[in-house]
Nucleic acid binder design. Structure first.
Lengths: 184, 184
DNA sequence: GCTCACATGTAATCCGTTACATGATTCT
DNA sequence: AGAATCATGTAACGGATTACATGTGAGC
């Protein structure tokens, strides 16, 4: 049984406790989103498949009239999760960066546009950096309260990563501004 | 007329000279692939669409019996390319990193597996770094011979980016090895 | 003669997002 | 009363990869 990466996201989130599809999505949005996103359109069908294969079990919680199905990881699911984390082999690593793509072709424009492009890129990454600092508190709390170290280390990686790109933008902007323009 | 990002890749590559679909694909593989990949399954249909909309023109080159259609950028295509590079607004930036995803959930495994995971991640990025250094010579030549600065800057960004992650892996490995394991 | 690089394309498939449809509960 | 949040799901669509099908030309 081949599990998609996104199904491991679900298994991983359920390992931290009993959760609904909605809660999984919310958690993803404040934790893994920056290196692995997931939408309702993936999560709900995948929950069904994982239940069918016995990796998770869902129980309806009648609280009032609101429908709500919370899922728990089964031993089988936990095993699959741990095997995936520990499995060697190649990783799916993929970057799509429209900013870098434009930058690659930026010989086609003038210096002003080049600098403006770098500013646009930098602003995007600064915004993400800010989101990550907002999130960090929660990850820190999870570390202190429940001993979960890795979510915090992951957020800190994310912040350092955004900083790296922001600084590259600033350095490169300086470099471009200083050296004379040669329009090709 | 809405162009996809990948069609701009094609326009951008054609701006550097007359090229076949095959050549565009080869070029992408040694230049933009690390932040924007493209496959034949996208390139050939997209060439057709771009030709239909008048952004590029293709001419058959009868050299021997081998079929070959090389494309050139039209003024319309060049305009579209430049407008895209200079256009502000939000950029499509997306990262999918299975290594970070596993790392996020790594509280579920032991210290040995955690260290091994970091090694796996590091090795992947070292491999990409090596590919980029192989490419760099070509980008440098393009700079010196044809004044194309941005491809070289982009490769250098890529190398620095890989180095950043490699170093993070090394730092984090040290951190994990030093501090006592607390299995949750 | 064989293999590799050149060269063009399409079909099936996968993965993922967006938009839509529906409704209950809680907070202001 | 109205808005925001909780909650579940599906259908349409888009973007991209993989595998397949086909054939030429150059070098060993």
């Amino acid at each position: 049984m081949e599990l998609s990466k996104t199904s491991y996201v679900i298994l991983g989130m359920l390992r931290l406790g009993r959760r609904t599809g909605y809660e999984i999505k919310s958690l993803v949005d404040v934790s893994t989103r920056h290196f692995w996103a997931a939408s309702y359109g993936q999560i709900y069908p995948e929950l069904k498949r994982l239940e069918d294969s016995g990796m998770i079990t869902g129980e309806a919680e009648a609280q009032g009239g609101r429908q709500r199905r919370a899922f728990t990881l089964t031993p089988l699911g936990e095993e699959a999760l741990e095997a995936w984390i520990a499995s060697g082999g190649s990783l799916h690593i993929e970057l799509r960066h429209e900013g870098m793509l434009r930058f690659f072709f930026a010989d086609a424009t003038g210096q002003d546009e080049q600098v403006e492009l770098l500013n646009t890129i930098r602003r995007e990454h600064e915004a993400v950096r800010e989101q990550l600092t907002d999130i960090r508190g929660g990850a820190e709390a999870a570390h202190i309260e429940r001993g979960e170290r890795f979510p915090l280390m992951t957020v800190d990686f994310g912040i350092a990563y955004q900083d790296f790109i922001v600084n590259w933008c600033l350095d490169t902007e300086r470099k471009i501004s200083e050296s004379p323009e040669k329009r090709s």
